[in-house]
Design a protein around this nucleic acid. Sequence first.
DNA 1: CTTGACCTTCCACCCTAGTGGAAGGTCCAC
DNA 2: GTGGACCTTCCACTAGGGTGGAAGGTCAAG
Lengths: 129, 129
Amino acid sequence: MRIGEVANAAGVSTKAVRFYEEIDLLPAPARSANGYRDYHPEILHRLGFITRGRRAGLSLSQVREILALHETGQTPCAHVRETLHQQLADLDEQIAALSALRATVAQHHHIATAGNPNDCDPEQICSYL
Amino acid sequence: MRIGEVANAAGVSTKAVRFYEEIDLLPAPARSANGYRDYHPEILHRLGFITRGRRAGLSLSQVREILALHETGQTPCAHVRETLHQQLADLDEQIAALSALRATVAQHHHIATAGNPNDCDPEQICSYL
DNA sequence: CTTGACCTTCCACCCTAGTGGAAGGTCCAC
DNA sequence: GTGGACCTTCCACTAGGGTGGAAGGTCAAG
């Protein structure tokens, strides 16, 4: 299979496929006589795993770790569980940080909505902030 | 005032002050005979506004918009209200997206925790994703 | 024979908010 | 005259996940 077919079947761009190869998420494929990448259809399993992992919120380096484990012949299940667990914790942290920021912004917004523009001290540029 | 004094008084690095100048958040200051930046103390109001805006969760480009309005002699209050409002909406969107992602990850994690590794289909790399 | 759809490589760029460091100039005190 | 604390400019780099484009090769159809 040529790169275009593979990319199309996997629902990604050819650029992305080459990029994945470059960062060692995909093995370098065989080459046809003309120099074109010549993929074994099995690559679709791997590419499919990458896109599923991405959709599941994993970063490419997390995906790479799991694939690396898989390459050693190990069943990566335990590592996947751990990765997902870590991912949940990270997400909770991010959500908490954004929620805190939202509270700060909401407070400023509340003051700005309630305030009288004439209270503005030009020296401060804006008394709301 | 030299850049070090200004940076110190504002609680930012000298690097940050030069960076703000470079991206037009701060006007280019006068120069002393030796080529050193020579700031009027008034710059501290502007720098203070920038840091307050940052702490309030605004991006530097949002701060720049407000400063630009201020430069035209307008009271930027209305724009600030609008910016904060937009910022709230953006934050809500980000939080919603992260929460949705968290739900997806939680579901995968749940399945991975409940499942039996022996169910793994090696062709799929990992049945949990 | 040419057009167009593929493919190749490589380099640059997006974004944010700066930071790190090199190479060199300036000033003050000891 | 020298050490150290400043200052100057410029260039590169950070992370993530790619995308855009240039310059060129290959292949089949019309």
